[in-house]
């Protein structure tokens, strides 16, 4: 027996819009039944990547397979297996929620009896059955999001794409969407894009960090965090408002052997605390040498979080970009 195909295989995908290189050769695979996040700032190329994987737009070069089906040559097979919730809520604003949903069910070829039953159940699940004859414009942003989500589920897709599912939602609505995604894990492979670290950290099995059209890191949230450990970030808390003065002092501590500053990235967070990085823990002695013990409250190590990982990796890739 051949092993089941990966839910997604993307190989060296590129896409240009005129002079803008939206994707510069992105590759990754997604295991069936997992939640995979594409994490990146605005303009990173997340939506472009999803449009290509969902057959809306063609890559310039590269290949991709959804459950083994080629996105370029087997579009109908791919489309039968996917559901997508796009970044903005797209509805037919002249039709009721009910008719928006039935239209999509018809396009998937479901028999009337079956889809009416299914839509009713899904609407009840998201507490919107009573609003089924409303127009989309009469629903709140969070409600519209829920309708978009169930619209993508009517045909029981095997692979579900969510483009920034919670951007612009209030915390309450966001929590609801998170809960829905967590429940969906059992039935579908989920690919979501986000620029919220917290979201990627909480929901995903694996994360692809995307920056300026390039994959700059991939792994489980834990692996990505470990990649930065031993965390080389420290926090210095002072009893006096001298953070800026000490930042200047620490900036001038030079390693006598290499002539480079011992401390990188010294940032006064406020008057009383500053954050800095150093590659070698033994350098911390230098800090203590330069700080008046009576000013010092605490010197501690900061745990890496996904945001640090992301910032440090994207900074590195941006610097390389500029250098080349």
């Amino acid at each position: 027996m051949t092993p089941p195909a990966k839910a997604i295989e993307a190989l060296q995908i590129t896409k240009n819009y005129g002079k803008i290189q939206a994707l510069k050769g992105v590759s990754f695979t997604v295991e069936t039944g997992s939640v995979f996040s594409i994490l990146g700032p605005n303009g990173a190329g997340k939506t472009t990547l999803l449009k290509i994987l969902t057959t809306i737009s063609n890559p310039d070069t590269g290949k991709a397979f959804i459950e083994g089906f080629n996105i370029l040559t087997q579009t109908l097979e791919v489309r039968q297996r996917i559901g997508i919730v796009s970044q903005d809520n797209h509805f037919d604003r002249y039709l009721s929620i009910w008719h928006n949903l039935t239209l999509h069910a018809q396009m998937h070829g479901l028999p009337k009896k079956e889809y009416e039953h299914r839509i009713t159940a899904l609407l009840k699940q998201v507490d919107l059955y009573d609003r089924r004859f409303s127009l989309a414009d009469d629903l709140s942003g969070g409600m519209q999001r829920r309708v978009s989500l169930i619209r993508a589920l009517i045909h029981n897709p095997r692979v579900l794409f969510l483009d920034e599912p919670t951007t612009g939602l209030d915390p309450q609505a966001r929590a609801e969407i998170w809960e829905m995604i967590e429940n969906l894990k059992q039935t579908a492979t989920i690919i979501l894009t986000t620029h919220y670290m917290e979201e990627a950290d909480r929901l995903s099995d694996r994360i692809l960090l995307l920056n300026q059209g390039q994959g700059v890191g991939i792994g489980t949230p834990r692996e990505l965090k470990l990649a930065l450990t031993p965390s080389n970030k420290y926090e210095l808390a002072l009893g006096v408002p001298k953070a800026k003065d000490y930042a200047t002092v620490l900036q001038q501590v030079i390693n006598p052997l290499t002539d480079v500053p011992v401390f990188e990235e010294i940032i006064p967070l406020n008057d009383f605390t500053l954050e800095f990085q150093t590659a070698k823990p033994e350098n911390l002695k230098e800090v203590l040498r330069h700080i008046d013990p009576s000013d010092l409250i605490r010197l501690g190590k900061l745990e890496a979080n996904l945001e640090d990982v992301f910032l440090s990796i994207t900074k590195r890739s941006n610097a390389q970009e500029r250098a080349s």
Partner: peptide, 17 residues
């Protein structure tokens, strides 16, 4: 409406038609 305003065309296009 469908192509530029409601952007529904993109929703239709991911259907198997």
């Amino acid at each position: 409406l469908d192509r530029w305003y409601q952007k529904m065309i993109n929703e239709y296009r991911i259907k198997p038609i």
